[in-house]
Amino acid sequence: MIRAGQRHARLALGANPVTLVAAVLVLALLLVAAFGPVLAPYDPLRTDVLHRLRPPSAAHWFGTDHLGRDIFSRVLVATRLDLVIALSAVLLSFAAGCAVGAVVGYSGGLPDRLVGRLVDVLMAFPLFVLAMALVAALGNEVRNIVYATAIINLPFYIRLARAEINRRRSAGYVQSARLAGAGHAAILVRVLLPNIMPVMVVQMSLNMGWAILNAAGLSFIGLGVRPPTAEWGIMVAQGAPYAATGQWWVALFPGLALVVTAFTFNLLGDGLRDAIDPRRRT
């Protein structure tokens, strides 16, 4: 099982060098997230008003912000928070989406129609606006950014899991499991769910970049993360007033961190999707 998984991973990554590069970059991001505070040359919260708004230099690679804080250190340290928010949101919608989608896809009937309607209603909101309203309703906290991002992503996971389960529910191997005496729960958990995992995991990696941008967008408009905390979206927001007066580095570097991270996850997701489903290659 594990050897087969390794072979599959090698196949998926080896087929496309871009995917390999993306995988290496994702690994690097995870390392920065883990060791960011150790790597940072300065304390990300230490202010130094005598050296405020200094352009990039040898001492401050990304310059300093309006309070004299070292932007390079802040960008490094923020990696962990941004990735943790996005990853928890994506994992939550993955778990809930798999569970709900699998059950209604397998059972069909009334629950299927009800959940379908609910998904339609969720999809009837522009997603970012729904996330805004959810954070406002649940309370302005980081935790709720995670929930809001998870909820607006949920419809995609439910639809995908439902469709994939529905397609397989009368497949030969399911019927043979049924004949062998397996109950509905056992068929769902042991036979069907493992089968749809590759598709769901790819959806998750395609979704990561988007979740990062969404969470950063929420903190950019002042929801969730509070000011002294280092987080890319809020750092861009703090740098925004200085973009029109020429101090481009305050907003640019955290913005670039966002773009590079989202781009990396998208590349990895595209590569993995191509590997498991060559028909959808574009």
Binding site: G209, W210, L213, A216, G217, F220, G233, V236, A237, G239, A240, A243, W248, A251, L252, G255, L256, L258, V259, V260, A262, F263, N266, L267, D270
Partner: peptide, 15 residues
């Protein structure tokens, strides 16, 4: 197509 989806509008706007 690949880079565009990774560009949040609040960063592009400032750039």
């Amino acid at each position: 197509a690949a880079a565009g989806v990774a560009m949040p509008p609040f960063v592009t706007g400032l750039v």
